[in-house]
């Protein structure tokens, strides 16, 4: 008898593609939020699969904090060219210049929270009614309660206590004018699934995910890369280390891990042995126990 079992990666892929096609069909103007990180790179790959041989039927939107790794931006532009996608960039700096957002003070001012303002403004500017995010439920405890189709009110806010139940594969994307949805096709993926999928599909990723030499400063246990946005405190110093990044966000809050992993299989082995979550390297989540929930309610990714 034929074996009709699909592997876990094939099932996750099928589910994510199904979600993307539902969004294309149910919404008028979807957009894919692209950060340059591995999760959004995987989403672009899935979107290609979902609609091939047609082009991806929605643009990518990058909310650029100005604090990016230069490697991320280079990779982004190369990838957009390769897949023939349309890219929209909106700058947090513009929101600050217009007085819509106010820069944080301190030795490493984070623009993480400010992104929400630029993001909501961009969604309104283009009248996007659905925005794909690469968020996964395993990432953070507030995300564990997130729906695939997550309703946002006219202020872009999430109401975690009043979410629509999601049953079977029936997704309700109905909304009032001015409201929008965030959609998370990778909800059921774990960090390990993402890496295994990247390896299986041989998806190109920025080299800073692999081991390299870099000058870093150890701030409260987080290894931050040397950059213009960080001011050294008394007793702090840069040192050369053999590191790689497990997640990629802003330079001001993305911690490196000491690692010699040079290939996807070594990364997979390293993660299998790791005793810390990937968000453990992110200073933005350490601000309070409900930091993610609070940011998400405001309209964060």
């Amino acid at each position: 008898m034929t074996n009709y079992n699909l592997t876990h990666l094939k099932q996750l892929e099928s589910e994510a593609i199904y979600i993307m096609r539902e969004v294309a069909a149910q919404f008028e103007k979807p957009v894919l939020l692209f950060s340059g990180g591995k999760d959004s790179i995987v989403m672009v790959h899935l979107a290609q699969k979902a609609f091939f041989p047609a082009k991806i039927p929605f643009p990518l939107l990058h909310i650029d904090t100005g604090h990016n790794f230069v490697e991320t931006l280079d990779f982004r532009d190369e990838m957009v060219e390769r897949v023939g996608a349309r890219l929209i960039v909106r700058l947090v700096q513009d929101s600050i210049d217009k007085g819509r957002a106010v820069e944080e003070k301190g030795p490493n001012p984070s623009r993480n929270g400010l992104q929400t303002i630029t993001l909501l403004d961009a969604l309104e500017e283009f009248k996007f009614d659905a925005a794909f995010g690469g968020g996964r439920r395993d990432e953070e405890k507030a995300r564990a309660k997130e729906r695939f189709f997550s309703h946002r009110d006219e202020f872009g806010q999430w109401d975690p206590k009043n979410q629509r139940p999601e049953l079977w594969n029936l997704f309700n994307g109905k909304k009032q004018i001015g409201e929008h949805f965030r959609v998370f096709p990778l909800s059921n993926w774990t960090e390990m699934d993402v890496w295994q999928y990247i390896a299986q599909e041989q998806i190109p990723i920025p080299y800073i995910y692999f081991t390299h030499q870099r000058e870093v400063v150890n701030r409260n246990g987080t290894l931050l890369s040397k950059c213009d946005f960080i001011t050294l405190l008394k007793d702090e110093f840069y040192e050369q280390k053999q590191i790689r990044f497990r997640t990629i966000g802003d330079m001001t809050c993305t911690g490196a891990v000491e690692s010699s992993a040079n290939s996807l299989e070594e990364i997979i082995e390293e993660i299998a042995a790791s005793r810390v979550t990937e968000r453990g390297t992110r200073a933005d989540d350490k601000r309070s126990e409900a930091a993610m929930e609070d940011r998400k309610k405001q309209g964060y990714f």
Binding site: N5, L6, T7, H8, L9, Q11, L12, Q196, A199, Q200, Q202, S263, L264, E265, I268, E269
Partner: peptide, 15 residues
Amino acid sequence: MTALKDNSYLQMDLL
């Protein structure tokens, strides 16, 4: 890219 050393995950299923 070189072949994966341990690719048992290519046989895993989902429950």
